[in-house]
Simulated assay, not measured.
Amino acid sequence: MNIPPVTRPYFSSDPAKEKAAVILCWAVTLLSTLILILFWEETRSLQFIANLQQYRTPFVEFLFRFFTFLGDDQFFMVFFGVLIWCVSKPLGFWTAFVLLTSGTYSGLIKDMTILERPALAGIIHPDNSAFPSGHTLTAITVWGYLAVRLKNRNFWLWSALTIIMIAVSRLILGYHFLGDVLGGIALGIPFLLFFLWLSTAFIEQKWMDKVSLPLLLSLSLAVPLLISSVLPGSDPPKLMGYLAGASFGYILEKEKVRSAVNAPFFKQIIKSVIGLAVLFGIIMGLGPVLPSAVEILGFIRYGLGGLWVTLIAPALFVKLKLSGTTKEPDQEIDQPTIPLPSESV
């Protein structure tokens, strides 16, 4: 159970570059915050968003819908499943952890601010409020976390491009005001830095070694359940339910199943197809039986989805001989099995 989610240095092995990256993060956060404070009304200009609509050619529409999809829940469900089953269990689990917690954080701020989205004809908005842009915030936390973990220059460039394009897509597609996107930046970067610091503290202080397996399993269920019961809105039960099931399954799988992610390509395809089919069957098919309208039932449904991804599916893949096993819980290398260029930042 002692596989580290992240280690220092976060951004570069070069101390000067590491310091510069941290300063840049805080500078962007401060600038976004100052713009919001000094020009609040201007950042909520409907005319600015309306003017952007003239650039929505078919190609621009396709391009930005693609990037906004990279910040959607549906994409992340597929992405995390494939990541955990076929690439790296620790990388997949901890990236999902970042998304679920930052998504809950974003939803809490939305429920506290309750600001309207741009009122543009023909734009169908989500049910939640506008500030901050959840896509922008979670793009920073998820893609930023992945870049820190992989420590690869090409992936850093891809992550930076993805974050920028997701943020711009929310404006071009008319889903958010400029202030909402700036809010996502101002709140997302500190969340990412805090999570990186906390992850490092877990490793350096060896906190996981001080907790017994039964207590860890109990906390993995109790803490998300408590959070979902006290936070307002319909999203916390779903996000925290998924986190509870995924955490419980991840801990237990490492102790009891110990599946290996390495497999021939055709087996990886089979694992992905089976895994995603059942996952969407649970999340969507059980909706009428375990509706999200009843918070505890929604918590259970998404919890079953998380449990499937991190425990039941890996165990099934081992049973079907689609995956092998490792001998010891700590034998699994906490690196992706898909080769990446060796060039680092």
Results as ranks from 00 to 15, higher is better:
93 F>I: 07
104 T>V: 12
257 V>E: 00
87 V>S: 11
70 L>W: 07
34 L>V: 15
322 L>I: 06
168 V>N: 05
79 F>W: 14
149 R>L: 03
303 G>A: 08
148 V>M: 03
68 T>G: 06
256 K>T: 13
231 L>N: 07
55 Y>E: 12
303 G>F: 03
69 F>V: 05
301 R>L: 10
106 S>V: 11
287 G>V: 07
230 V>D: 09
226 L>F: 15
159 S>H: 02
316 L>P: 05
177 F>T: 00
27 A>R: 06
66 F>G: 10
263 A>E: 06
179 G>Q: 04
198 L>I: 09
138 T>I: 10
216 L>E: 13
74 Q>S: 14
40 W>E: 11
77 M>Y: 13
192 L>T: 06
14 D>P: 01
283 I>C: 03
170 R>N: 11
167 A>M: 06
270 I>Q: 10
345 V>S: 12
67 F>Y: 15
46 L>E: 15
217 L>Y: 07
190 P>G: 15
313 A>S: 06
30 L>A: 15
62 F>E: 00
6 V>F: 05
145 Y>P: 02
203 I>Q: 14
133 S>K: 00
129 S>L: 05
200 T>F: 05
203 I>A: 13
340 L>Q: 02
184 G>E: 09
128 N>C: 01
36 L>F: 03
300 I>G: 09
168 V>A: 14
298 G>C: 09
117 R>M: 07
180 D>V: 05
335 Q>W: 12
103 G>L: 08
106 S>A: 15
151 K>P: 06
78 V>E: 04
341 P>T: 04
155 F>E: 08
217 L>D: 05
294 V>E: 11
249 G>Y: 11
26 W>F: 14
236 P>T: 03
222 A>R: 09
119 A>V: 13
93 F>S: 03
93 F>D: 02
189 I>S: 10
253 E>Y: 00
7 T>W: 05
257 V>N: 02
14 D>T: 08
196 L>R: 02
89 K>V: 04
264 P>W: 03
158 W>S: 13
80 F>A: 06
31 L>I: 15
218 S>L: 15
318 V>K: 11
135 H>Y: 03
132 P>A: 04
181 V>H: 05
220 S>T: 11
191 F>S: 00
186 A>P: 06
87 V>K: 10
63 L>K: 04
285 G>P: 07
165 M>N: 04
148 V>A: 12
25 C>Y: 09
231 L>G: 04
18 E>H: 02
168 V>P: 00
275 G>M: 05
340 L>K: 04
87 V>P: 00
91 L>N: 02
196 L>G: 01
259 S>F: 15
282 I>F: 04
115 L>Y: 11
222 A>I: 14
80 F>I: 10
130 A>P: 02
76 F>L: 15
6 V>M: 12
238 K>Q: 15
264 P>Q: 07
37 I>L: 14
201 A>R: 15
89 K>I: 09
315 A>P: 12
270 I>S: 08
126 P>A: 09
55 Y>T: 12
149 R>Q: 12
15 P>T: 02
149 R>G: 03
36 L>T: 01
328 E>Q: 14
56 R>E: 00
312 I>P: 08
112 M>Y: 11
66 F>Y: 11
161 L>Y: 04
227 I>G: 09
337 T>M: 08
205 Q>K: 15
171 L>Y: 00
318 V>G: 03
